[in-house]
Amino acid sequence: MALLLMGAAASARPTAPVHALFYQPQLTDRVLPAARWPALFASVRARGFDTLVVQWVQYGDGFTAPADRAWLRARLDEARASGLQLVLGLAADPAFFQRQADAPDAVASYLQGLARRDVAVAAQWQAMLGAPAITGWYLPLEIDDQHWRSPEARRALTDALAEEVRGLHALAPARPIYVTAFFSGRMAPAAYAQLLADVHDTGVRVWVQDGAGTAQLGAAERALYLAAADGCAGSPAQGRVHEIFAQVPGQATFTAQPLSPAALEAALAQPLPCQDDRAVFELRYLPEAADLLAR
Rank of each mutant, 00 (worst) to 15 (best):
A2M: 05
L4T: 05
L5K: 08
M6D: 12
A8Q: 07
S11A: 14
A12S: 14
A16N: 12
A20K: 11
Y23Q: 06
L27V: 12
R30G: 15
L32I: 15
D50S: 13
L52G: 09
Q55R: 05
Q58F: 03
Q58T: 01
Y59N: 04
G62P: 00
G62T: 04
T64Y: 03
D68V: 00
L72M: 07
E78F: 01
E78G: 00
A81E: 05
L84N: 00
Q85I: 04
Q85T: 14
G89D: 06
L90S: 02
A91E: 06
D93G: 07
A95I: 15
A101G: 04
A101C: 06
Y110S: 13
R116Y: 01
Q126Y: 06
A131S: 10
L139C: 00
D145S: 08
H147D: 08
H147V: 13
W148V: 13
S150W: 09
P151T: 14
T158A: 06
L161Y: 05
G167P: 01
L171T: 00
I177N: 01
R186A: 10
A190P: 00
D198T: 11
H200C: 05
T202N: 07
R205N: 11
Q209A: 02
A215E: 09
A223C: 12
L224N: 11
Y225M: 10
G231E: 11
C232W: 12
R240C: 00
H242F: 08
F245R: 07
Q247D: 08
V248K: 09
Q257S: 10
S260W: 14
L268S: 12
P273G: 12
Q275N: 10
E282V: 06
E288D: 02
D291M: 05
L292P: 01
